[in-house]
């Protein structure tokens, strides 16, 4: 798993570090970490239906914030738990645009070992950077 939970930030909430060789891999790892926060065994969520998520922002870290926020919205508004399948990030005129395809299914309390509801991604200590050729992010989720 290209992410790990961090114990030493924001005690009451959930912080994670994610990484990837590309920005796209990093964002997919972030979506995986979000799913793992809510479901103990993410593989219990079957890849039944496709959902497309598109977000735009002026900076990469805010783009990750908007992307995770959209997945949190879909969890409540559509009851969807989603695995990232494809992520594409384009940069044009100082704006970043993310297009992603995710697959998942409706929340099923019988089959999905649920852990905790995520209320929101936060901006506290939010960080996206490329270090020695590896893209890394730190995110604090409010739970």
């Amino acid at each position: 798993m290209p992410f790990r939970f961090l114990d030493d930030i924001a005690t009451a909430d959930v912080a994670f570090e994610a990484w990837g060789k590309t920005r796209e891999e990093l964002f997919a790892a972030g979506a995986d970490a979000l799913l793992s926060t809510m479901v103990h065994d993410p593989e219990a969520v079957e890849r039944r239906e496709e959902t497309v998520v598109t977000v735009e922002d002026t900076a990469l870290d805010l783009l990750l914030f908007s992307f995770l926020q959209e997945l949190v919205f879909l969890k409540d508004a559509r009851r969807r738990l989603l695995h990232p399948e494809k992520v594409r990030i384009a940069e044009e005129g100082g704006r970043f645009r993310l297009e992603s395809v995710l697959r998942g299914e409706k929340i099923d309390r019988q089959r999905h070992p649920l852990v905790v509801d995520v209320k929101a991604a936060t901006l506290h200590r939010l960080r996206v950077a490329c270090e020695s050729g590896i893209w890394r992010a730190v995110v604090v989720l409010d739970v």
Binding site: A10, T11, A12, D13, R125
Partner: peptide, 9 residues
Amino acid sequence: GHWGYGFPI
């Protein structure tokens, strides 16, 4: 009080 985001809790 404990460590939150923005304000402390």
